[in-house]
Simulated scan of single mutants.
Amino acid sequence: MKYENLILEKKEYVYLKRILNVSGYSESSEIQKSIIKLNEELKDARVLNEDEMPLDVIRFNSKVSVISDQGWEKTIQIVIPSERDFKQNKISILTPMGAALFGYATGDPVIWDFPTGKQHFTITAVEQVESSNGIDVLL
């Protein structure tokens, strides 16, 4: 892992903890496992001010490109739950893939349990995208 621990911006950390606490874990066991694992990783996360955030760390609205050990490649955007749109490759932080990527950086290898089994992939690119909604509005 490039930065040794997950890295999160303060406002995003507060918002993420809030939605994880109210998410309820009721959708499926894989989603529940992902949320629990993300909660565990957040215990050791580095929480930084906005101006201290590295540009290659995955945050809300980041566009992320990954390549799997099985050969598939995908570019997705990690968003708040209300902005998810599968057709536009916008996935919620509360999905297994969203939870797996959040706080990691370009070049990091990730191993995560998905409904299809354990997946190994590498983050190949991270692009920061401004949100029309913004976390500030939600806090």
Rank of each mutant, 00 (worst) to 15 (best):
84 R>W: 03
38 L>I: 09
107 G>D: 09
93 I>K: 00
37 K>E: 15
137 V>G: 05
62 S>E: 06
46 R>P: 07
29 S>E: 15
127 E>V: 13
94 L>D: 07
33 K>M: 10
58 I>R: 00
139 L>D: 07
41 E>C: 02
109 P>H: 10
1 M>S: 15
62 S>L: 03
68 S>R: 06
86 F>L: 12
40 E>N: 14
101 L>V: 13
100 A>G: 04
58 I>Q: 00
33 K>A: 15
129 V>R: 04
73 E>L: 02
57 V>W: 03
113 D>L: 08
14 V>F: 11
35 I>G: 03
115 P>W: 04
84 R>L: 09
77 Q>I: 13
14 V>R: 14
102 F>C: 04
121 F>W: 08
14 V>Y: 13
87 K>C: 10
74 K>I: 09
135 I>N: 01
39 N>K: 15
9 E>M: 03
93 I>A: 05
38 L>W: 11
71 G>K: 01
118 K>S: 10
17 K>N: 14
16 L>E: 04
72 W>E: 07
85 D>T: 07
67 I>P: 00
115 P>K: 03
33 K>Q: 13
116 T>H: 07
137 V>D: 11
30 E>W: 14
14 V>K: 15
68 S>I: 04
136 D>L: 03
66 V>M: 11
133 N>R: 11
8 L>C: 08
57 V>Y: 05
25 Y>L: 15
118 K>H: 04
109 P>N: 14
17 K>W: 04
107 G>L: 07
115 P>Y: 03
48 L>K: 03
106 T>C: 05
74 K>A: 10
3 Y>C: 00
46 R>V: 14
34 S>I: 03
113 D>M: 11
90 K>P: 02
117 G>P: 11
115 P>D: 01
72 W>Q: 04
6 L>E: 11
39 N>E: 15
21 N>L: 07
66 V>H: 06
44 D>C: 07
104 Y>T: 08
20 L>I: 11
76 I>T: 08
33 K>W: 13
90 K>D: 02
129 V>F: 02
44 D>M: 07
